[in-house]
Amino acid sequence: MAFFKAVLFMSLGVLFHAAYSVAEWRYYSRKTDQDTESIPWDIIIQTLAGFLLAMIAVLNIAGEFKEIRATVELSQKSWEDVRNRPSFYLFNHRAMALSPDYVPPSPSASGMGRSHLTKIPDKYLS
């Protein structure tokens, strides 16, 4: 990473230098009234080399590429995660009974009186 950052810095320097060279060349060619229209070869090569180096450096700095096929990423997903719906959560499920604040429903509410859970009500005894 540090290496490619250095390469990027260098290539930007190269590109800047190429741009400056063109400006300078234009200045002199105008002053001397030369007819040569095309930019000198060395500057073109320098520009292309700087561009290529910068491209390689940026591609390496940007990080991992993502898979282009949508199915590859989706096939990692499990049914549990896909069917999870946070906006429809219900809270009255079995985790309630595992919480430290849980108060079991009072026995009187279940129609068994204050007796033990396993006791059979009198009406079912002969």
Partner: peptide
């Protein structure tokens, strides 16, 4: 907060 509601951790 939502996770705590899910497991009824009122504190």
């Amino acid at each position: 907060a939502v996770a705590a509601m899910d497991v009824q951790r009122r504190d």
